[in-house]
Amino acid sequence: MIKIKLNNKDKDIEENSSISALIELLELNPHSIVTEVNLNIIQKDKREDYILNDGDKVEIITFLGGG
């Protein structure tokens, strides 16, 4: 297991997990979110190949109503 910061909270995940695997684990709709690792946006088509490392800061962001 490795430890990442997910939306500013500690989270343990399997080693060699991709972002896509994390999204699946969290049961999120991959089309309605933006993913950022260590302040870099990871585009939708790169998520499958992007392997997370111990200590990575992952942000999962979505669009909400706002004025």
């Binding site: 939306n7 709709n29 962001i61 979505t62 669009f63 909400l64």
Partner: peptide, 15 residues
């Protein structure tokens, strides 16, 4: 529109 972290316990609908 606004951007926010996804609430992982209760994911919101994308506007």
């Amino acid at each position: 529109i606004a951007l926010r972290r996804v609430n992982l316990e209760n994911p919101q609908d994308n506007v």
